[in-house]
Nucleic acid binder design. Structure first.
Lengths: 221, 221
DNA sequence: GGGCGACTCCACCAAAAGGTTGAGGACGCT
DNA sequence: AGCGTCCTCAACCTTTTGGTGGAGTCGCCC
């Protein structure tokens, strides 16, 4: 069960380097190697490789648009797309991921990482260059900073199960009335839980409660 | 310039497996191998390894707390900590990263990935297990789903600059009064902007406005 | 059996947010 | 000049939230 890879990059050098790296793996095979976005989309649709390794800067159609055409929302049978680029711009990362890419690599990565990324992509999972990951993380969890007071040490007073239920619903934008209805309790109860949670989390209103819930991952997207 | 690694895991098997994997690399050296959190912190402080590879479930002191002690906010010379665990829980991921860990690995990863992660960690950069990354990404950019309607299309009615200012402050948990003070406008103005933003985003209250702001990355952390 | 914590609920009040309508000034575009 | 958009503000009212204090039930543990 070999992993079939399509490589798209306008630089001949890069294409052959990637080809050589992947060629060292017995279970990987480069099925196409093209120099522009239009050919990439064309070949990808015809050959349906397990992984499409796309550069961003390409003639005719850039890698981000190509990604959207191959893996974006609305595509019925999306392919696994891995973006590899020299340019480490947030804008690129976001657009790539939103367009359905399942990986974002910088060209200064090690060969071993490329191989791991391709392997991950072939199963639809994601792997992102360390340097990029650091920045993505900083958006999820503020970066480590000496003297930072907003630490995530375990709460001195942990939330009870019921409080957590209420907090989750608050984070989803529900009013106290709705929460009461959903949990089959009165509004008074909801308010009690909320007040307690508010005290325990040391926050001032429900928006901050919701913020805590989003930050810590108690609720998700 | 070898990379000195400390391994902490309560399972003898895991410790030796990790040791063997890292041992295959000429530039890596396991300088300590301990079975509980307290020893891990102790040895790490004494030996100052380049990378600390910690399990979460450990006697005496769990890996998350150990991470905080070695790399958390307030530590003057933080060490590079890599968390490796069997349990893929969001709660763990967030706490680990907030406590200063620069990586989060699942124990079902490939040896090659472990090596890459250690190498990345030794320079302070991050690498996260593919499976975990997928979920982290889904918080940044909604996951690809055929027929998904929550796509990254631009809003039919885009927010104005001022509305965005207000939205950001809402997402940070401020009241309308505070927002007015910060932006040097009256509360009435804040309410107007907020009402407009609410209509444009098609949401029902400020918590959902905040949720939108976090989802789309208008505000971070 | 007494204590404790979690969960439930009530009343009352103050503060904040949400909804509506209207209106004036600044700016750019045609 | 006329038009539209954005930003600003106001008055008025309803709904929702936040704050405080109290109170009853249940299950668990010592």
């Amino acid at each position: 069960m070999t992993i079939r890879v399509l490589i798209a990059d306008d630089q001949e050098m890069i294409r052959s380097a990637f080809g050589m790296i992947l060629g060292t793996q017995p279970d990987m095979e480069v099925v196409a190697s093209v120099a522009d976005g239009e050919s990439a989309v064309e070949q990808a649709r015809r050959l349906r490789p397990d992984v499409c390794l796309l550069d961003i800067r390409m003639p005719a159609l850039d890698g981000l648009e190509a990604t959207r055409l191959l893996a974006g929302p609305g595509v019925d049978t999306p392919l696994n797309v891995l973006i590899a680029t020299t340019f480490d711009l947030d804008e690129y990362v976001y657009r790539a991921l939103r367009n359905g890419a399942c990986g974002f690599l910088l060209k200064d990565m090690s060969p071993a990482l490329l191989i791991e990324a391709v392997r991950a992509a072939s199963t639809g999972t994601s792997l992102i260059s360390p340097a990029v990951t650091v920045r993505l993380l900083s958006k999820l969890a503020p970066a480590r900073q000496p003297g930072d007071s907003t630490v995530d040490r375990p709460l001195p007073e942990p939330l009870t199960d019921r409080e957590l239920d209420v907090v989750k619903l608050v984070a989803n934008g529900h009013t106290n009335d709705e929460i009461g209805a959903k949990l089959y309790v009165s509004v008074a109860t909801v308010k009690t839980h909320l007040a307690n949670a508010q005290r325990k989390l040391a926050v001032r209103n429900r928006v901050e409660i919701a913020a805590w819930a989003w930050r810590t991952g108690v609720v998700s997207g």
